[in-house]
Each structure stands twice: as structure tokens, then as C-alpha cells.
Amino acid sequence: MENIIEIKDVEMHFNMCKEKIDNLKEYFIKIAKRQLMYEDFIALDKVNLEVQRGEVLGIIGYNGSGKSTILKVISGILKPTKGIVKVNGTIAPLIELGAGFDLDLTARENIYLNGSVLGFSKKMMQDCFDDIVEFSELKDFLDIPMKNYSSGMVARIGFAVATMVKTDILIVDEILSVGDFLFQQKCENRINNLMAGGTTVIIVSHTLDQIRRLCSKVLWLDKGKVKMLGDTNTVCDAYEGNLK
């Protein structure tokens, strides 16, 4: 099988400045006083990972273990300090639903805007506009500004747009916890459909049930290091054992 994502020895360092300096005066004063001290924070430490086409990878770990950082590195938002990231395909990042919505615009306008933010063409959006509306079940609210929407409604639109056009890789960060129970099920069904169609999925979740249900492989991160990588049940059992 062909690797769709290859991560080799990736390290992500952040300069944690003791205080955030964002104006010139302080910057020069600190330089003059040689006080510009940084604390090196390692968010990811020599992470190696290979994901094959069609796999569903779950990422688990405690808060601050680097889960979101690795998603951002994969989707190209962050450039790793060291190491190589190779991605052979298009990515739909669902790191936060509704990124790129302008709440002053109506839902109709936002659907097109969000689609273009994700890099879809005009034709693609026109073709699947009706499907998106139908999936989100918000047909009656299409022409009101989205600032009047509830957060659940915003999430519905966001999920519908991001999953409507088939991409090679889908990145899902804790989003299955939004919306009501019925909509959550609908989202899970859609992810299952995408997986059946050969889309590679990466899921971050604290709900181990969800991970067990959906994933074919699990990565356990701990303080930026790979603690365990392998078969879903083995890793999940070990993680649960560690919690107790």
C-alpha cells in the first residue's frame, strides 16, 4: 500500500518568550539589555508516522500532549522546526468547524466562501450546494446572517461543506461532540461513507468509544513523544490501563 502521509523525525519547537513582546520599544530595550530570553518548548519530539491510503488513524493523549499540533503540522498550518512531512493528496481540515465563516454574511454566502477557503472551485460548489443544504437541514435559515445562528447550526454548515467534496484526507479534531445526538450520528455515518470511498481519516478524540468504533490504527502521544502506535484495541487498552 502507498503511504499517503509520511512524517519523519518531526520536531516542533516553540520559543516561549517569558513575556510576549510585540512592540519595537520593548524589543530594542530587551536586546540592549540582552534580556531576550526564550524558553524552548518542544511540542513534538522526533515523531515518526506513516499513514496508508484508506486508513483511519486515531490520535489520543492527555491535554497538551501535542495532538492538535501534529494535526496542524500535517495540514500545513505549522511548519515543523525539524524533520520532513510528506502529504500526497488534498486535505479537508476540520480542526475547528466554521473556520473562515464571516458571521455578518448569510449562510448561503458563507457556504460558497467556506468552500473556496478550502480550495474548492466554483463549479464544485455549485454542483454540491443543494446537497450541503440538505445535509445541514437548515434550508429555512439560508438567507439570514450567521451571527443569528446557534453554535450547533454553525457546526452543521461547517461539517456539511467540509465533507461534501471528496478529498483524499479528512482531519477531524474533536468535532463529533457538536450538534445534537441525531446529527452526531449523521456525521459518523458520513465519515464511515467517506472511509468506504477510500478517504484517509485522522481523528482526535477523548471519547475512546468513538476511537474504537471508527479507527483502524491509533497513535498515543505523551508530552510530544510517541508513546505507542499500533492496533486500535491494544493501544486503547493500554491507554485506559494507564488512566486507572
Binding site: I77, I95, E96, A99
Partner: peptide, 9 residues
């Protein structure tokens, strides 16, 4: 900034 932090553009 909100967009830049969440999506690669």
C-alpha cells in the same frame, strides 16, 4: 488570524 490558525491557505 482565526483562519490562518486553522486552515492552510
Amino acid at each position: 488570524r482565526e483562519l490562518i490558525k486553522k486552515i492552510y491557505i
